[in-house]
Every structure is written in C-alpha cells, then in structure tokens.
Amino acid sequence: MDPFLVLLHSVSSSLSSSELTELKFLCLGRVGKRKLERVQSGLDLFSMLLEQNDLEPGHTELLRELLASLRRHDLLRRVDDFEAGA
C-alpha cells in the first residue's frame, strides 16, 4: 500500500470528532460546503484534498498547517517520520 495513504489513514484514525469538525471548518475555503457536509472521517476529507491536489506525498504543507492548528504535535511527528523515510 502507498506509504502516504498509510500515513493519512493513521492520522485520520487518531482524530476525534471535534477535531474533524475543526478540520472541516478550516478547509471551507478549499472544499465546497456541500462536499464537506458529506465528510464522515478524516480520510474522507483527505481524499477530497488529494483529488484537488492539495495533498501529495511531496506536498504536506497543508496537512502540517491543519495538524498544527489542532495542536496535534504527535501527528506532526508522524508526518516528519514519513518525510524522513520517503
């Protein structure tokens, strides 16, 4: 399986429902409101961002910004580990 997708799945499974709600709010300018209403998990949101090329294995800035906004430094370390091994 693609290591970047494994990372996104790992991050998604670590998010609380309130954190997902916050991420959806933060992505309002990037993803349409109707699409965001269908998001049920972090993976749903990340999939939309992947489709729009806002997220890519070599383009993790948005993911970092979102996780920093949540103050999830543990998840930021996972992104660091991914990039160190990528």
Rank of each mutant, 00 (worst) to 15 (best):
E22N: 08
R64I: 05
S41N: 11
S12Y: 02
P3I: 05
A84N: 13
T21C: 08
E51H: 08
A86C: 11
L66D: 02
S10Q: 12
R78A: 12
G58P: 08
L23K: 00
G32I: 05
K24M: 05
S14I: 02
R38Y: 12
K33C: 10
R30S: 06
L8F: 02
G58T: 13
F4A: 02
K33W: 11
R78C: 08
L75K: 01
S18P: 09
D80L: 07
E51Y: 07
H73S: 13
L66E: 01
A68N: 14
P57G: 10
D54S: 10
K24H: 04
L43R: 06
G32M: 07
R38F: 07
D74E: 03
G29T: 10
L76K: 05
T60W: 04
E19R: 00
E37Q: 09
K24I: 04
P57A: 12
S16Q: 06
K24G: 03
M1G: 09
G58C: 08
S47H: 15
S17W: 07
E56N: 15
L62H: 06
L62R: 05
P3M: 08
E22A: 09
S41M: 04
R34C: 11
G85Y: 08
E56G: 15
L67V: 05
L26K: 13
S18G: 11
D80M: 08
L36Y: 04
D2Y: 05
L20R: 02
G58F: 07
E61L: 09
S13Q: 07
M48E: 10
G29R: 09
G85M: 11
L70D: 00
L28T: 14
E22P: 00
S69G: 14
L75S: 01
S13N: 05
M48H: 10
M48L: 14
L15A: 02
F46T: 01
S18A: 12
L43S: 10
G32V: 08
L26T: 06
L66I: 06
S41A: 06
K35A: 10
L62E: 04
R78Q: 12
R64A: 04
L75T: 02
S18Y: 09
D54I: 13
V39M: 07
R34Y: 11
L62K: 05
V6K: 15
L70I: 13
L67C: 08
K24W: 02
M48Q: 09
L15R: 01
Q52E: 11
L76T: 07
A84E: 15
H73P: 14
L8R: 02
S13L: 09
L45G: 01
L5Y: 15
G85A: 12
E37N: 10
L36M: 11
S17I: 13
T21G: 12
S10M: 08
C27I: 07
S69R: 13
D2R: 05
R34G: 13
D81N: 09
P3H: 13
R72N: 03
H73N: 12
L67W: 02
L76W: 03
E61W: 11
E19H: 00
E56Y: 12
E22F: 07
E37P: 04
L70T: 05
V31G: 03
D2Q: 04
D54F: 14
S12R: 02
P57D: 11
L66T: 03
G85F: 07
R64F: 04
L7T: 03
F82M: 04
S47D: 14
F25R: 15
R64D: 03
G32L: 05
R78P: 03
F25G: 14
G29E: 13
M48I: 15
R71S: 11
S17T: 12
S47F: 11
E51S: 09
L49I: 04
S17V: 10
Q52H: 09
L66S: 04
K35Y: 06
S12M: 05
A68H: 12
F46W: 04
D54T: 10
H73D: 15
V6D: 05
E37K: 10
M1C: 09
L55E: 06
T60E: 00
G32K: 08
E61N: 11
S12C: 05
Q40G: 11
L36A: 07
S12L: 05
L67K: 00
D81P: 00
G42I: 05
R38G: 13
R64M: 04
F4D: 00
L28F: 09
D2F: 04
T21M: 14
G32A: 12
L67A: 02
V6E: 14
M48K: 05
P57W: 10
L36I: 11
V79W: 00
P57Y: 13
L5C: 08
K24D: 03
K24Y: 04
L76G: 03
F46H: 00
G58R: 08
F4S: 02
A68Y: 14
